[in-house]
Amino acid sequence: MLAALLDWPQAAFASKVEIAGGAATVKREVDGGLETVQMKLPAVVTTDLRLNEPRYATLPNIMKAKKKPLATTTPAALGVDVAPRLVTLRVVEPPKRKGGGKVADVKELVAKLRNEAKVIS
């Protein structure tokens, strides 16, 4: 969405990002494999789990962070309308599965799948 609003290119689920000569080459996860996309910069990239190791905050840095100024602003000051466009009418719990059945061995499992559940032939 951010990419569209800025008219920038996008690459979602990136697993590898290389930047060279004002363009980015991104490997992204798609259904059933990988896709390599070449795009102009600036661009918006969303990352996949395996792109990199996150940089964890160390204790000294956490202490330092406490002294840093924190700017506070409001949506009105930025000129954006945050009125929700979606109204939640109700929230329900999904139907519960009543699992918990056990079988003693493979023979019984196969018999039950064939005759009781009828999911295999």
Partner: peptide, 25 residues
């Protein structure tokens, strides 16, 4: 063409198996 990005390569794993999202089993 918006010219913003192009797909330069795809590595789709070929498989004789049914697609995961729509398989019966």
């Amino acid at each position: 063409d918006t010219g913003l990005s192009t797909v330069t390569g795809q590595e789709i794993v070929k498989s004789d198996r049914p697609e995961l999202a729509s398989a019966r089993i």
